[in-house]
């Protein structure tokens, strides 16, 4: 499991009071973990701080609402971690 996943899973467990052992790379943040939009904001804040990035949360929401992306693209944890890695790489470039 990647370091990014471990960090994000720890954040979700701490922020949303979810048993860390129930969080897997295939977990859907909303459907499987039951995280609502307000708790997800707390997760995004903690991830932003941990990785020194700015997750384009508003853009992602628009893309999903307009059908240009699926919720799975961003809310399945392994996909979310891939996006985070991309943002970290873009910041370092």
């Amino acid at each position: 499991m990647s370091k990014t996943f471990d960090t994000v899973a720890d954040i979700i467990a701490d922020t949303c009071d979810i048993d860390r052992d129930t969080i897997s790379a295939d977990s859907h943040v909303i459907d499987d973990l039951g995280i609502d939009s307000l708790d997800f904001l707390d997760v995004v804040f903690a991830v932003d701080k941990a990785f020194g990035i700015k997750i384009p949360h508003e853009k992602w929401t628009e893309e999903i609402n307009e059908g240009r992306a699926t919720a799975e693209d961003y809310f399945i944890l392994k996909n979310l971690c891939t996006r985070i890695d991309e943002l970290v790489a873009a910041k370092s470039a």
């Binding site: 932003d48 700015k54 384009p56 853009k59």
Partner: peptide, 9 residues
């Protein structure tokens, strides 16, 4: 504290 995308703390 943090001026995020679509939110701020």
């Amino acid at each position: 504290e943090h001026n995020g995308s679509g939110y701020a703390v």
